[in-house]
Structure formats: structure tokens, C-alpha cells
Nucleic acid binder design. Sequence first.
DNA 1: TCCTCCCTGTTC
DNA 2: GAACAGGGAGGA
Length: 281
Amino acid sequence: MPELPEVETVARTLRPGVVGALVERTRLLRASSLHPLSMPLSRLKGRVIADVGRRGKLLLIRLAPGGKGGPATPDRMAVHLRMTGRLMTHPAGTGPGTHTRCVIFLRRADGPALLHFDDVRAFGQILLGNGASFARWDFWRTLGPEPLEMGPADLAARLKGGRAVKAALLDQKVLAGIGNIYADESLFRAGIHPCTTAESAAGRAAVLLEAIQAVLRLSIAQCGSSIRDYRDANGDAGAFQNSFAVYGRAGLPCIRCGTPLEGMRVAGRATVSCPRCQRQG
DNA sequence: TCCTCCCTGTTC
DNA sequence: GAACAGGGAGGA
């Protein structure tokens, strides 16, 4: 499930194959894979891809200046991979797979190529737009800061209320890019129980942010985690799943103290923590 | 602040 | 053939 490290890896691996490429045409195979606020995908035609970046869990494809200009002209495309989305380039002539939702036909210096957006569970979405249209997108407008670029005082100020700290970490308005895996892994590393209230975890914001950043950096260095679906733009799996301390390890011994890890449900998500190493309150 | 829904493949 | 995985929207 692509969270920040996985999307970062996709951006890095996608870049060499698409930057500088001209979009010759597009084909949308599933209408619901286009976000309701999106411009028609056909407006990509004739545009050149300038760069590939990331904001939180969103992959951002930036377009070089061009087109007619004006409010109907896109300058960026956001892709939310959600659980099972994949972006991969393929040789020209490669047919769409069962779960291909969108095909972008590219013209590169070395000839034609395809960019496929595949998504088994069809939760992922593409949003083509520009600065003005993104400003009308609530999710974009309210997206919290990048965890690798924020400071502990900012995190402390954002941890408010009596909800579980894990719920706060999953809230993209608090900080952008953390999902179920990295929430659990960060809380274990920080020694904070997931059910601790956000306001009381605010007192340990420095430790928590350090844990979040360490976990994200370690995962990025290993090209993310592959549970089952995730692959980068080259089709390669990540390796960080081999370093999980708690995620998916309910009932197994804690790597630090040997106590069986506890599985529970927090914020509607499967949650694993160590009852001994992670203190509540 | 919490729950349900969306969606489909995998696992029990 | 049901339970489960889960991010975010929307409703209770």
C-alpha cells in the first residue's frame, strides 16, 4: 500500500522514463479512475512532462508550459495510488491489462512508449488540473506538512484533542504521507502506545517526529515496503517489509523485549503494538 | 469523533 | 462464501 516512501520511490523510478516525453494521446478505460474535479484527460495531448514529484501520498506529474493557456489549461496531474495503484512505462504496443485504468501514449527521444495506470481495486484516482483548480480541491488545500520537512514544535501544535494519536497520524491534515504501516512502525520506535491521546502525545512530539523521520528515511533507502501489490515504476518490489517491527506481526514476540505483540483495531485500522515497550498516556 | 462505504483479490 | 486488506469521503 503506497504511503510516502513508496510514492517517493515511484516518483524516482518513473522520472527517467517520462521526463521530456510528449503526450500524443490518452485513453481512459475506467471513468471513475478520474477524480470528479479533474479536467478531461485529453487535455494532456500535445503537452510535455517536465518533472515527476510527490506531495504526501500524491504523485505529481508536472507539465512543461504549453497549451492554449488560460483556466482550462492543465499544468499538473496528481495520481493517488491508494492501495493497489501502479504507474509503469511499457514498450509501445503493449496492450492494457485487466486492471489498466488509463493509458498515456508518449513520444520520447528514443521513440514511442506507454505509461499505464493499473489499479486492481480501482480506489486510486487521477486529477488533471492547474493551480486554480487544485485550490478548489479540499484534500489538496488542507494537506498537512511533509513529515521530513517539519519541526517538532509544528507537530506538537498539530496533535490536539482526545482522539488516539494513531488516528491523528493517519489524518493527512495533520501531516501528509503517513498510512497504516508507518503509523504503527513510528509509534513503536517512539515507544508511544497507539491509543495514547493526541494531546498527551504532543508532549513527546520531538521523540515521535524523530521516529517518524527515521522510519520514513529507512524505508525510502530500501525503496519502500511491498506487502503484496506495491511495485515501483520498474515493476520492482521494495525491501522495507523485511524490517517491520510491528506491522503484520500481531501475536509474534516484540523484537525488543519478546513480549507477544498485541493486535487491535484503532481508527478503524488493524493496529499492532507492544504492550510493554509502548506506554500509554 | 466514530462508523460505513467504495472495490476486488487473497486467504481462511 | 465470508472475512479481510485500507485512504478518504461522507454521514451519524
